[in-house]
Amino acid sequence: MSKILIAEDDRDIRELILLTLKFHGFEVVSAEDGETAVKLAPTDNFDLILMDVRMPKMTGYEACRKIKAQNKTKDIPVIFLSAKGQEAEIETGYEVGAADYILKPFAPQALVDTITHVLSR
């Protein structure tokens, strides 16, 4: 069973992702902001990190940069899940090392498909 770390500040959406992933059999750990996500990332052998962009304390871009800069976590694929959908914003996401960029609102099935796809790489 794959273990996924999610970072999402909106409580409702965080719970939605949690429910969706658990329903599909993933093990999930959640963080409320980028800073916590960076702290949690090396603690448990995560297979994947799902991250919002706009978060308090540290943005998703910044968090991803830090995760990719650390040896221990640099190989964990990061997927952004954000309502920020302008071309420049998506480009920034890939620049900081994202494996994929999913736009909100998202279909739960599409989210699971993307995660499965990234995990199978």
């Binding site: 939605l16 609102p105 739960p108």
Partner: peptide, 25 residues
């Protein structure tokens, strides 16, 4: 950009939970 973000965030919850329930979760 901000407004669209603010509109999309609640819509994510509305649509997502509806999808989740429809999925049979």
């Amino acid at each position: 950009s901000n407004v669209s973000h603010e509109l999309r965030t609640p819509m994510t919850s509305i649509k997502g939970y509806a999808d989740l329930m429809l999925m049979g979760a």
